[in-house]
Design a protein around this nucleic acid. Structure first.
Lengths: 293, 293
DNA sequence: CTCAATCATGAATATTTCTTATAGATAAGG
DNA sequence: CCTTATCTATAAGAAATATTCATGATTGAG
């Protein structure tokens, strides 16, 4: 019944004094406005303005409609602007899921660049998922997932972001510390410190130990910091990304050794719903992520 | 750009789950909604929903539009209801001007009836005017004027409300108190107590004394109560509506005497702008005013 | 695999809105 | 007092917009 046009007409009339002026301001002709309000008056059964000489004067009803116009029109304009900003990828909320510790560490580095590039974007980081990160992505709990695991799904696109190597961390004076690289068999008598998750979710098992049918003693530790401390205190060895390991090497008596002759190479991926591929800020994130080597 | 229809569609979709259901709820066909939102998406350059299997899911933009819809639609509906109430004369603000003391006294009696008859109406009473009450009516400072003076004006309609008589008030033991009525000459040696306004605005002069070329001593008094007290104390005589005078006669040693053989008859009128004649609550006021004899 | 449910699309139709032309009313100026 | 300029209302036709109908595509269930 009351349309945006009516609100605009009443406001333009109040702002411009005469209907003719109001029509110019709205890039319409005067009869257009006359007709519109006439129609509304008929529908509502109330007069909205009255002729007074050659002027129009708002009735009580017209004044009420004017109030409504002044309240609602700015809201509509704001919404339009924000939606346009969404469309151009300047504004919005990016919800990022991270499933692994290296993912989280890596994200911290890239995030600042992203927020500088798109100052009006909000970012939310989610690292607890009811099931898997992929579920979170498909259920729209997150819009982007940083993960090293590629799980084939036709609704999801994976973009490689960052290559790194998993290395073994040993005490400086450990017998393996002199090697450039080791074989799976070298770990047979070691205590392996890992995050407390099933072995099939740890690359050191799936890609290094299991193929060689080696299965050393393990101990689950929840915190990376404590894990590294325990390595320094010779309570075991652990496996972590080389760029993280190198930081610890400078502070503690620990050394890195490659896993296998060619090292254990990994890649972080950005996963997103295929339907979101075209969204600008997601592409921006991926571009920045690839640059930030 | 964003029209009420778009808001209704997004809300109906959110409330009904599927577009087909939403279309039913809006008494439209599904393609109508599809086309509408498609148009808006093109205009704004942002997706508002996505197909997900055979469901639709709102995007961030769609969620924002939904928020806007939930905020604005109720306001529009409320405004429509209120305007309809205005049209039916159930609701609104009645601003009544009163120019004379009897008018004000009379208004007090009728007002309660009016407020009972139209419980949603607000009433404002104005008794100070920059110029005259008629000016106040023509300038839209009031919508209705209660006055005994009819000033011809083609934009104003006068409706008679109430007939009354102006009477002389004298002390019980005054020489004139025994008369049923008096002549202008009888007042020649009296002190006449009046409101402090020009004589040409007092009926006792314009309609009784001046035609007889009689001009007694006068004294201006601002308050009716004090005026009557002074009459009781034999400091003069005064003129007031009989229905007011009778109340004082019961409390004080004063008596009323008619002015001239047939008394000085007066009528209160309701004046309103001709353009407002059709407004229901004004007609209601007049009807109630005439009944309240 | 088939069927039913759901949304998208394009063309045709229906409806609404706008403009043009004109008339009525009014205030200002000669 | 008449004329003119200004402003709004109204009617009819033109233009724009919205809706429907017919259809195709996709998907999930049986």
């Amino acid at each position: 019944m009351i349309e945006r046009a009516h609100l605009k007409i009443i406001q333009a009339l109040a702002d411009n004094g005469t209907l003719t002026e109001a029509a110019n301001a709205l890039f319409l002709t005067q009869p257009a406005l006359s007709h519109q309000i006439r129609y509304l008056e008929k529908k509502l059964g109330v007069a909205l303005w009255q002729r007074e000489g050659r002027q129009l004067r708002l009735t009580q009803g017209g004044e009420l409609l004017l109030q409504t116009a002044r309240q609602l029109l700015p809201v509509l304009e704001k919404t339009e602007q924000t939606l346009q900003a969404y469309g151009e990828g300047r504004q919005g909320m990016l919800r990022i899921g991270v499933e692994c510790h290296p993912c989280h560490e890596w994200l911290k580095g890239i995030l600042a660049n992203f927020l500088v590039a798109l100052p009006d974007m909000d970012v939310d980081i989610v690292n607890k998922f009811q099931f898997s990160g992929l579920e979170g992505l498909l259920n729209h709990h997150v819009d982007l997932l940083v993960t090293p695991d590629v799980v084939r799904n036709k609704a999801v696109i994976y973009e490689p972001l960052f290559d790194y190597e998993l290395v073994l961390l040993v005490p400086d004076d450990h017998s393996l510390s002199v090697n450039e690289s080791i074989f799976a068999e070298d770990l047979i008598n070691e205590t392996l410190l890992t995050f407390p998750v099933p072995h099939d979710r740890l690359d050191i098992f799936t890609q290094f130990l299991l193929p060689a049918l080696i299965s050393p003693k393990t101990k689950g530790i929840a915190s990376l910091d404590i894990m590294v401390q325990m390595v320094a205190l010779k309570r075991g060895v652990t496996v972590l990304p080389s760029w993280l390991a190198n930081e610890y090497c400078q502070q503690l008596p620990v050394t890195t050794v490659s896993l296998g002759k060619h090292g254990l190479q990994k890649t972080l991926f950005a996963a997103m719903r295929e339907s979101n591929m075209a969204i600008n800020y997601l592409q921006t994130f991926i571009t920045l992520g690839k640059q930030a080597v």
